[in-house]
Design a protein around this nucleic acid. Structure first.
Lengths: 155, 155
DNA sequence: TTTTTAGTTCGCAACTTTCCGAACTAATTT
DNA sequence: AAATTAGTTCGGAAAGTTGCGAACTAAAAA
């Protein structure tokens, strides 16, 4: 890869990541800032640099950075004698990703159990089918826990 | 549970499921219709019954049902001598849920690999950290495949 | 053939989201 | 003390989304 085409491709990838993150519920601006901090060779950006690089207003950047920080997706560091904050992506662990998946599944499972509980006929089509799904989810959740332990050991 | 309070609780659960589905990217009306078809004791609804039960306009119900059907979330059946379509929830399998999870993970993995490929310095902080995540994802995706087979066998 | 049933399609009003500029604050420099 | 830096907060304009009613269609019934 030639150095000249790298930045252009990186910008395209940021846009792609932006749209992907939007599908996960992020707003357009935070979604793209996440991309910026992951993709570019420069891995620490100041507030002002983000404003210039992304051509987004200071107010939008301010709001976006606060949100991303609260969510634990980005963090900032400061250097002695420099008032600026340097923002960077938080190096999450695979555990976190799997935990999120598991948490979502557990929430669905909770809801499914509530549906079953409220069914007048526990042998109705939906009740039967939801019971099967419920059992499957429990199986996978348990196995995911085991896998997390297995992965941690081997690493 | 007394029969008198069941419908009320079911309605509340539909609203809860509606909001949960909205977080998954569904629009309010389809999100709640999904809930209706899963929760209520009556498990097959005609177009008109949905309009009355949910107090939503015919046009909105029409659009919502079409979308849900295209996505494979609901289906309809007809009975001989009856022009109405009876809508019901599609009894998906746990496999489908796990596949969706896996597909999402694989998409993320693809993106992460692209980021790594575009990094000038393959030993940068983000490059290193993304490589770790990447390896972890590959591990979990493979194990999920194995688990799907294991589950199918035991069932 | 006309009417009714069972929906679909379209344009628009209402609502929500997103983003911006202007005005502000609080710390640091001049 | 005044000006600059590094942001934050707020109100509103612009854009996007949602859901409705009205007008439509196609099949069946009268």
């Amino acid at each position: 890869m030639e150095d000249s085409e790298r930045p252009k491709k990186q910008k395209e990838l940021i846009e792609h990541i932006g749209r992907q993150n939007e599908r996960e519920g992020f707003q357009p601006v935070p979604a793209r800032i996440m991309g910026l901090l992951m993709v570019m060779d420069k891995e620490e950006y100041t507030f002002e640099e983000i404003v210039e690089e992304m051509q987004i207003s200071k107010s939008s950047v301010s709001t976006a950075l606060k949100n991303l920080e609260i969510r634990g997706i980005i963090e900032y560091i400061t250097y002695p004698g420099d008032r600026k904050r340097y923002f960077r992506f938080v190096s999450g662990e695979i555990d976190g990703i799997v935990n999120d998946m598991e948490a979502k599944m557990m929430k669905s499972l909770e809801t499914i159990k509530q549906i079953i509980e409220l069914k007048k006929d526990p042998n109705s089509r939906n009740a039967m089918f939801l019971k099967t799904i419920s059992a499957g989810m429990e199986f996978f959740i348990q196995k995911l826990d085991e896998l997390k332990i297995e992965y941690k050991k081997n690493k």
